[in-house]
Structure formats: structure tokens, C-alpha cells
Design a protein around this nucleic acid. Sequence first.
DNA 1: TTTTATTGATTGACGAGTCAATAAAAAATA
DNA 2: TATTTTTTATTGACTCGTCAATCAATAAAA
Lengths: 194, 194
Amino acid sequence: MPKIGMEPLRRKALIDATISAIGERGSLNVTMSEIADRAGVSSALAHHYFGPKEELLLATMRHLLADLGADTITALNKAGTPRERLSAIVGVNFNAGQFREETVHAWLAFYVEAQNSLSLRRLLRIYARRLHSNLMSGLLPLVSRDEAARMAEAIAAMIDGLYIRRALRDGLPNPLSAGALVEDYIDAKLAQVR
Amino acid sequence: MPKIGMEPLRRKALIDATISAIGERGSLNVTMSEIADRAGVSSALAHHYFGPKEELLLATMRHLLADLGADTITALNKAGTPRERLSAIVGVNFNAGQFREETVHAWLAFYVEAQNSLSLRRLLRIYARRLHSNLMSGLLPLVSRDEAARMAEAIAAMIDGLYIRRALRDGLPNPLSAGALVEDYIDAKLAQVR
DNA sequence: TTTTATTGATTGACGAGTCAATAAAAAATA
DNA sequence: TATTTTTTATTGACTCGTCAATCAATAAAA
């Protein structure tokens, strides 16, 4: 009963299934069969559309990255002042969509896998650079170039760290709001530098 | 040519080999044979001393944790003031021994694996709690309880984030000194709160 | 002779990737 | 319009490799 034009649907379903499978297992240790099952197709079909497993993982990572990018653009467009730009960036990273447990797990898993995969590392580099330059666009009007670079690095690290901690949530006493912590850092620094 | 009393030596060698193998691969995707090879023994011997693979990984994690704990105690003993305690804690996490690339890779890999392993998760929780309480011991004399909790959480997140970024070092423009970023945060907050 | 150290060989499971076969839609041809 | 052909969708069955874990066998020390 093959219906025509299934390819885009299947690709999307497989990528979604990949995210949810990784989110549940908590690591990239998911089999093609498991992913295919979740998408309601055979593993052979997954290979048919994506070839080797790494291609599917890459496509999934690209999807995550594109989502984050789109959210960021939307948020930045609503921001007027530089300070608002900073809040917009922080907000995007901790909004309900991005900070979902399965998404967070997927990011973390990809970070580790990037150690073995050049293409994955490249993708993450793009993300890191984009975040950095977005942060700089908000910071440069407010502080010196040196200070901006330092703050951008610190904010990025804090975001990554909060993602990790979210993934391991049960180790943390009181789950203070993650975004507020970053905002608090920004305020403290801006007050200090004047 | 069996010499007696090899057990402790072999255990140590296998744990060291595990750290270096994970550090090189960048993930827990290392085989028992690979680890055993590095330790100069057969994989059968590794199983003989540690049983299933997870036991070896747990022992390795415990070793890392014990190292960090010992370093922390030493550093804290040299610290007089609360502010010095904070610097001591930060310093330990970024000193040459702990911030070695292979160690950082191992930590990151274990974080991900913790998603699948209850015992591993338990170990990481111990680490998180210890870090938190150490930070609080430095912060409480300086700021309110609420503020201390917030700062402890932020500092811990920053440390975790800087570890991630160190593991993916090639994505980052200028590798500012990681410890200095955390110190800078602490200074800014203490200045703000007065 | 019992205990400790050690390994080569083997087993068994699991999982990625391939392939030939099936079937329906679409296009081409008669 | 009726048919043949090509393209797209789909899977079950199979291959091949890898790897954790076991075990029986060997040998030296106690």
C-alpha cells in the first residue's frame, strides 16, 4: 500500500523518533531498530532514507540546531535594547521547548559523541560560534570588548552547565530556575562594570 | 610466571587504563580488550578482577571522585578566610591534574552514562552534594542563605559547563583561563551584594 | 596440594547494514 | 483506453562483525 510522497514524512518521523529515543535512553546507545519502531517503520526503511546510522544522527542534530536557531531569531527580533537581546538569548535556551528533558538529553549525548565524529564536532562548533556572536551583539554596546568576551564565555559555560545539571536533575537539592541564574550573573556583572 | 600479590597492582593499572582509554576515545565506547591491552593484561584477567564491565567503570569513577575529594581537602586546609575557601574549591577543579583532557573526557562520558546506570548516578550525586556543601561553607559567612544557594548553583553549573567546553576545545575562539572566569563571577557577586 | 595469577579459545547476543522480493502509484507506450 | 514499464515505498531474512562474559587449562607460589 505504498503511498507516494512519503519521504519527507518518514524523514521527519524518524528524526522525531531519534530525539525521543535518545531522550529516553539518555544516550546515543539506541539501535536503528528501536528508532524505526518508534517511527512505525522497519529498520531497513530507516537505512533506505538515511543510509548509515551516523547520517540519521547528524540529521537529528541539524534539526535540533535549526530549531534553536529559529527560536533565537524570533526572540532577538522582539528585543529592543542590548540588555533585552541578552535576555532574549538566555530565554530561548531555557524556554519550555528547548529545555525539555528529552532535548537536553539529546544535546548532552551529542556533545559526547562529537568526540568521535568530525561532522558532529563541526555542527557543534557552528552552534557555539552563533551563540557567542549573538551574545557579543548584546554585550558590546554595554561593556568593553575584553569584558564582553569574558562574559560571553561565562554565559555560554553557564548555559551548558545548567543543561548538564538538568539532565542529572535528581542530584540537585533545590531546582532554582535556570534562566534566572544566568540573568542574575548578567546583572551582577553589568552593575560591577557600570 | 605468576607473582603473588598482583591484585592491587592490576586493579590500579586497569583503572588507569580505563581513564586513558576513555580519554582518548572520548566516550565510554571502549572495549574491555582495549582497556586490558593498555594495562598489559588479557581481557579475561580484567573480568577476573572486576567481573562485569560496569564494575570496572564504577571503580574508575570512584577513583576519579576520590582523587578530586583528596585534592579538595588538601586545598581547603590551606584556606583561611571564607573567600579563600571558595578560591580553593575553584582552583582544585581547574588545576593541572583535574583539568587534564583525558580526565575531563572521562567525567563527561560518565555524566552521559549515568543516565543508564543507577549506581553511577548515585556516585555523581555524591559529588554534586559535596561540591555544594563545600561551596556553601565558603559562601554562608559572606552572603545570605538564599544568595549563597543561588551562587553555589551558579558556580557549580559554570564549572560543569567549562568542563564541557574544555572537552570540545576546538570550537572555542580564545581559551581564556577557565578558573579566572569563575573567580570573576564570584568577585562580581560579592561586590554587588557587599 | 591448595591457592593465586593468567590466558587462549569459545560462546552467545546483539546490532548495523544489505538485498532480493513485493506491491502500489505514475509514466510511457501501444 | 489498455498495457507495459519505471519509479517509489516497504519489509523480512540474512550476513558479518564486534564484544562481553565464561571456562578449561597452565603454571608458579605457598
